[in-house]
Amino acid sequence: MVLRFAANRLIGMIVTLFAVSIMVFIIMEIPPGDYAERYAFRKFSGTGVSVTESDIDSLRQEFGLDRPAWERYFTWIGGIVTEFDFGEAFAYETSVNNVIGDRLWLTLAILYATLILTYLLAIPIAIYAAVKRHSLPDYGLTIFSYLGLAVPNFMLALILLYISVTTFGAGVGGLFSPEYEDAPWSVAKALDLFKHLIVPGLVLAWSATALQLQTVRATMLDELNKLSVTAARARGLPEWRLLLKYPARLAVNPVVSTIGFDVNRIFSELPIVALVLSLPELGQLLIASYIDLDMYVAGAILLMLTFFIVLMNFVSDVALALLDPRIKLAGG
């Protein structure tokens, strides 16, 4: 049952990704002008050389920008699918793959660190708060949540940066200490990365945690009042076992169903946090490539980010189907 459901969703995911790739390509085409013009402007502005239309045309030919859009689309997507080749990064005069390089993995590391931190904090705390409703810890958590939602991320990033620099003495900007920056991967380097992930993870996770805390707490309160919980209690089940098996199990559902949403939010909040903490991630590169009209870089980043949002939506759908048997019946 779950397998068939997953297969269905997988096909849906592939169709979505195909549609997304076309949309990304259209977005790449939208900005006025193209890289040929930009290149000509850069190269010759201020030199007094006048650039003619035919100069630009020959540049277009050189970059392959003269071919029709659909042909360029298929060359582009074909390269990505068959060779994981995202094309040329004109501005850097190298391949997109080289430009993006480790940034993809670092972005993913921040993403998953944030997600895991969010869920590890939000789910148990919210369940506890709901069970101990109207107690001091419950009120405390509510205040903490509102703080998390009210304080802007960049400010939180600055505060945490300040604290970690002043109390731990170490610079937390970047993702690696200088000595590991160019070192090959090792356990020590991974540990160093982990240390550097804590502050951005905390900043990004705080607001996500605050939001999920409120959702899980509300669902848990709802579930606690269900007759099925009273019925389970009437069976003589010990209280904590009962709470975990029945209401808590269902209170996790809204979290699972909004994984894709969280991924999306983290991606959009990441650039600001990354700017403050000077992290090499994809968001800033995306903005830079847009300014340079370096469209294959922009396209590759957009495609990767949406790929992970779609992928995490797929994961969320399948996980939800595993958690709730009613969904399989409707979807399979």
Partner: peptide
């Protein structure tokens, strides 16, 4: 209906 948990 409500006496049973729907997920077990």
């Amino acid at each position: 209906m409500a006496s049973f948990s729907p997920v077990y």
